Measured scan of single mutants.
Amino acid sequence: YCPACDKSFKTEKAMKNHEKSKKHR
């Protein structure tokens, strides 16, 4: 789950990829 974006991810890999993504924050 990403509190900054208020989005939840089913896998930890998806969240790690999201955190590295430029769309994050």
Rank of each mutant, 00 (worst) to 15 (best):
K20W: 03
E12S: 11
P3A: 13
M15Y: 07
D6A: 10
H18V: 05
K10G: 04
K7Y: 02
R25L: 13
E12P: 04
C2Y: 05
K13P: 11
K7D: 01
K20I: 09
P3N: 07
F9C: 04
S8M: 01
K13E: 13
E12A: 12
E19N: 10
S21P: 12
K22L: 06
K20Y: 06
K23S: 09
C2F: 06
E19A: 12
D6V: 03
P3S: 15
K22S: 11
E19Y: 12
M15I: 04
K22T: 07
C5I: 03
A14Q: 03
K23L: 06
N17A: 12
S21T: 09
P3R: 15
C2L: 03
S21A: 10
D6H: 01
K13C: 11
K22E: 03
E19T: 11
S21R: 08
P3D: 03
K23V: 06
T11P: 05
K20C: 10
K16A: 05
A14T: 11
R25H: 06
K20T: 11
H24R: 01
K13M: 13
H18L: 03
K23I: 05
K23N: 04
A4K: 14
S8C: 01
A4D: 14
K7E: 02
Y1N: 15
K20A: 12
P3V: 14
C5N: 03
C5F: 02
S8R: 07
K13N: 06
Y1R: 14
S21Q: 07
A4S: 14
K22V: 06
K13R: 09
M15L: 12
A14L: 07
M15T: 08
C5K: 02
T11D: 04
D6P: 00
D6G: 07
K22Y: 08
E12N: 14
H18N: 04
A4I: 15
E19H: 08
K20V: 10
K10T: 09
E19K: 13
K20E: 13
D6K: 15
C5D: 03
K20M: 10
A4Y: 12
K16E: 12
S8N: 10
E19G: 10
E19C: 11
H24P: 12
P3W: 10
K22G: 10
K13Q: 14
H18M: 03
K7G: 02
P3I: 15
A14H: 04
Y1F: 07
A14F: 02
H24K: 05
K16F: 05
K10P: 10
R25I: 08
K10V: 01
H24G: 10
K20Q: 05
Y1K: 10
T11V: 00
A4R: 14
